[in-house]
């Protein structure tokens, strides 16, 4: 702790401010969840607790189907994005043109959803057209339907969206790993893959796990890019957007928002708790080891 002459009350005040901001960011969502359990919906003067809205949502075949699509997308996004982010982080470590590489990999963070979605939409439509034309010119049917809007194109949109987050998290974890360990493993006779899997991966596992959680949640919550690129199916958040824009908010919509928030909080919250407990454990261990030679 930075020990100096700061007034402890000023520090307490600043802590209070920090927690107020966290709470302010969370409270609208908490209020939405609160409404979703009210039998009478938003605006009612009376509050009767009920699961009915959730029962209606989960009993709706269309909504359950959209949840399934959401799940497929999330699982595929994790399965592709995480290995790719690992490759990117490795590539970054050995790359001699780090700035150019990072600029390419992180730029998607700075391109807003609707702009990225529109660009990819027009790109895919042209690509599909180009392949159809190629097939016709060559007189073969292979290229029919390539890059038609659908699961694949929505997937690509999601990878472009989620990859930068996974890349940063893994890179930060990897920056604490010292490369000499890999060299030592290689010197002991390990192959590059063995050195990675047996020496490096166990040390970055926490980062990989948290980026899995982040990608799952980002994919689960994504609405705009998927909405533009999905073609024929709907994800859960697509349905919610459509409801908000067309019907306005019903009790059902509140329950859907509730489901999305609760899933995010549970997944991210548990990852946070695991990370915090782990780092608490590690720092306690470090403190215990440092104790005899503390001070100076």
């Amino acid at each position: 702790m930075y020990d100096n002459f700061a007034n402890p009350w000023t520090i307490r005040l600043k802590w209070a401010y920090l927690l107020t901001v966290v709470l302010a960011l969370l409270s609208p969502v908490m209020y939405t969840v609160y409404i979703s359990f009210n039998e009478h919906g938003f605006g009612a003067r009376i509050y009767d607790f009920t699961f009915d809205w959730y029962r209606i949502v989960l009993g709706d075949k269309l909504l359950v189907a959209s949840l399934e699509w959401t799940l497929y997308l999330a699982v595929t996004a994790v399965a592709i994005t995480i290995p790719m982010a690992l490759l990117s982080a490795k590539f970054y470590k050995r790359s001699r043109r780090k700035v150019a590489f990072v600029a390419l990999m992180l730029s998607p963070l700075f391109v807003p959803a609707d702009i990225m979605g529109s660009s990819l939409l027009v790109f895919f439509k042209n690509l599909a057209g180009a392949f159809t034309w190629l097939g016709e010119t060559l007189g073969v049917g292979w290229f029919e339907g390539w890059f038609d809007l659908g699961f694949l194109t929505a997937m690509i949109g999601q990878i472009i969206y989620t990859h930068p987050y996974a890349f940063i998290v893994i890179l930060i974890t990897m920056s604490r790993y010292r490369g000499q360990q890999t060299e030592a493993a290689r010197a002991c006779g390990a192959t590059a893959w063995q050195a990675f899997w047996q020496v490096e991966f166990p040390q970055i596992r926490v980062g990989v796990l948290s980026s899995c959680a982040f990608v799952t949640i980002l994919s689960f919550n994504e609405a705009v890019r998927t909405g533009l690129l999905k073609g024929g199916f709907d994800t859960f958040s697509n349905v919610l957007v459509a409801q908000m824009l067309n019907i306005g908010m019903s009790g059902e919509s509140y329950a859907m928002a509730g489901i999305m928030s609760i899933v995010s909080v549970v997944v991210i919250g548990s990852i946070l708790v695991i990370t915090l407990l782990r780092s608490e454990h590690l720092s306690r261990k470090a403190r215990a080891m440092a104790e005899p030679m503390m001070s100076s």
């Binding site: 020990d3 100096n4 002459f5 030679m293 503390m294 001070s295 100076s296």
Partner: peptide, 18 residues
């Protein structure tokens, strides 16, 4: 020797720690 308290002493004189 390092860890013996000499830096702590200096920082106390300088007022960086109480």
């Amino acid at each position: 020797p390092s860890g013996g308290g000499k830096t702590t002493l200096l920082r106390l004189i300088g007022g960086f720690i109480q």
